[in-house]
Design a binder for these strands. Structure first.
Lengths: 239, 239
DNA sequence: TCAAAAGTGTTAGCGTTACACCCATGC
DNA sequence: GCATGGGTGTAACGCTAACACTTTTGA
């Protein structure tokens, strides 16, 4: 690392790119922006931008998240670093290294497009194809990571508002995994996992207009779930 | 991302840093190099180096791995991207963004120090402290990731030679996890997991000089383990 | 009174743990 | 023979999946 002349090489640019997920109408959606300029003008892309000299990639990602979603307070939102994409040629203009992040939003405010983006739109995950650069791959990696992390962390609560019902939490799992879960068993598993959720005493909320009001819960403090909440296997639950 | 002048800012440098693990004498060891120059002259650090303009971070990591270990063929070794460290000020000289990788070696050739490093040494993990830069943290993150990945991937075979016994594989788990496993149960779990290992027909090897020769196995093709091989919980196996 | 949604109880089956036991080899 | 390490068998336990059932609300 010594004897390196920092101006000797073509400089690297570093960007933070975001896969911002939310649930809308029972489907996983991702925030996309339309590119206004070449390359890939008119194509959809993941929101993102350059890391500035005085900030970390995490700071840049959080700043972009606020700009693109229009949310005024993004300080409490979950931001997860995925991995870094550094293949030469992934941006035809210059050498760009992208640190990719995933973010999870409980509700979906209408996207309004930040300063960089012509338009921003929530798109169903399955319809988000043919993105600019290598963003198809980044998005697929992000989706895979989020699905896997639901198994062994309390991440699912990041898709929920501050107070939520167990039915809402279950819908998060069912939507992201694309599988139906048994309600009684889901309930027991969640409550049996220390630190996953904590009850809001006395609070209840009607969900579907009818039916018994559901008790409310808040996200717990546990980072990892013991035991994990395993995803049902595609063919036959026991494997 | 548009309208960016690539020479307007202080340039970023991108490095690939490596946490290279191996097992020696029943203990987890990590490869460290001694820094020859300021900052942190004389301190130990993780091997690593700058990503060159025509290579990805993965390529740079593999190149460094070969240089630091002296191995002639590192093409088959497992290299895993951990995360990227980008806090301003983590290198006092300039803005350096480091993409960190973990690598696993079956045997431990004596380190001889690459071109950049004054000395290189295999160090027991527990003795690797007070490293240069933020390498203490990177090393701790790497160790955590490797331990966790043993649970749900076939990664443990990366610590073993091409053909290995189940006893050797079990020692990998016991060493990394710092826990004793039941041999009969370990054997059954591994063999019951499709794609984890495949038998080498007819082959056998004496391990401790005495005892029944053990059958040999090769790493299987499965990336993920179903079911996972869960780490025993610290207090009481069932939890 | 009915439909809808929350919540409780119960049982059969499976996987895991713990441990006893047998096999093959070198000394 | 005996120590050492590989390999097999098995019974008790715990967890989970599946599903029947009760409770509380709005219409």
């Amino acid at each position: 690392m010594d004897g390196y002349d920092k101006y000797a090489y073509e400089p690297f640019a570093v960007t933070a790119d975001l896969a911002v997920f939310t649930l809308r109408a029972g489907a996983l959606h991702v925030l996309l922006v339309e590119r206004g300029e070449e390359p890939y003008a008119g194509r959809w892309a993941l929101p993102g931008g350059f890391v500035r000299p005085d900030e970390s990639a995490e700071s840049a990602a959080r700043r972009e998240l606020g700009e693109e979603t229009g949310l005024t307070d993004v300080s409490g939102l979950h931001l997860e670093q995925l991995r870094t994409y550094s293949e030469p040629g992934r941006d035809p203009r210059m050498r760009v290294v992208s640190v990719a992040f995933a973010a999870l939003l409980p509700d979906a405010p209408e996207a309004h497009g930040g300063s960089d983006a012509a338009r921003a739109r929530w798109t169903p995950y399955d319809a988000a194809r043919q993105l600019a650069f290598d963003h198809d791959r980044i998005l697929a990696d992000a989706r895979g990571r989020v699905g896997a992390k639901l198994e062994y962390t309390g991440l699912a609560t990041a898709f929920c508002p501050p107070e939520f019902t167990l039915g809402e939490l279950q819908q998060v799992y069912e939507t992201v995994w694309g599988a139906e879960l048994d309600r009684p068993n889901f309930r027991r598993k969640v409550l049996a996992t220390p630190g996953f959720v904590e009850a809001v005493p006395g609070a209840a909320r009607l969900t579907g207009g009818r039916g018994k009001p559901a008790a409310l819960y808040r996200a717990g403090t546990a980072a990892a779930l013991h035991p994990p909440l395993l995803r049902p296997t595609p063919e036959g639950p026991p494997a």
